[in-house]
Design a protein around this nucleic acid. Structure first.
Length: 233
DNA sequence: GCGACAG
DNA sequence: ATCTTGTCGC
């Protein structure tokens, strides 16, 4: 895929026309490029991404929303209307959503210093969920933030906001189950790329001052759903 | 074979 | 993800 991005510089580019087997091989190959340590300076812009699918058919809308890291106000919203090619296969989720998300990123004017994804990062069977894939692809810090579990086991975190328990898979800590609001179902946070698990959780909490999900994913979700609604009218 | 399974 | 109304609670 060509680098049509205005400012984001794709680093690891590859074809998206892959078979299931090729996708699996690519994950194993790219997973070695993930860095689970903090590698960034000041974070001014934080982005959220999401994709919404049309009721029937395979049309979809992908969005990237950039927020001011301090005020959490929306700075920029870009979207891409596309068609789903790769099927939804647990573990190969990134191959379904990334092509469309990249098209949205190509329109972005602001370069995010951190991207929060709506899916897992290292909390993945081959340690390469959507957040890792997006992070390695753009060489940008990313956090995996899922609403439900893909793999791993964890104890139930305390009822207070900020409580968390390690998510363990194969004797390895692959993420944290984090409570972002008192008495509300926790979410699954994991490293995407260029961030440590601790920093990832700090940011997710900071981005979730009022609701269960971080503002980044909430704003991206609102954007794609509003656009999808317009398309069905 | 059986259950699990990001969105 | 999507199909879907009202409703209990802060």
């Amino acid at each position: 895929m060509e680098n049509g991005c205005k400012l984001m510089k794709p680093k690891n580019i590859h074809s998206w026309e892959l078979s299931e087997d090729e996708a699996l091989k690519l994950q194993l190959e790219l997973s070695s490029k993930v860095h689970a340590v903090d590698q960034f300076e000041e974070i001014q812009y934080v982005a959220g991404v999401d994709v919404a699918y049309q009721k029937e058919g395979d049309k979809l809308v992908a969005a990237v929303v950039v927020l001011d890291a301090v005020t959490l106000q929306v700075i920029e919203t870009v979207m891409a209307e596309d068609v789903a090619v790769f099927p939804y296969i647990p573990g190969l989720f990134s191959f379904r959503e990334l092509p469309s998300l990249i098209k949205a990123f190509e329109k972005l004017e602001h370069v995010p210093d951190l991207v929060v994804c709506d899916g897992q990062g290292l909390a993945h069977p081959r340690r390469f969920g959507l957040a890792c894939h997006l992070g390695v692809m753009f060489d940008v810090p990313t956090i995996g933030c899922g609403k439900t579990r893909l793999i791993g086991d964890a104890n139930t975190p305390g009822e207070k906001r900020g409580s968390c328990e390690p998510l363990i898979d194969n004797d390895e800590i692959v993420g944290n189950v984090l409570r972002t609001q008192d008495g509300v179902n926790p979410i699954y946070v994991s490293v995407g790329h260029r961030v440590s698990l601790e920093t990832a959780c700090d940011w997710v909490l900071r981005l979730s001052p009022k609701y269960r999900l971080p503002e980044t994913t909430r704003k991206a979700d609102q954007a794609v759903n509003a656009r999808l609604k317009e398309l069905n009218m």
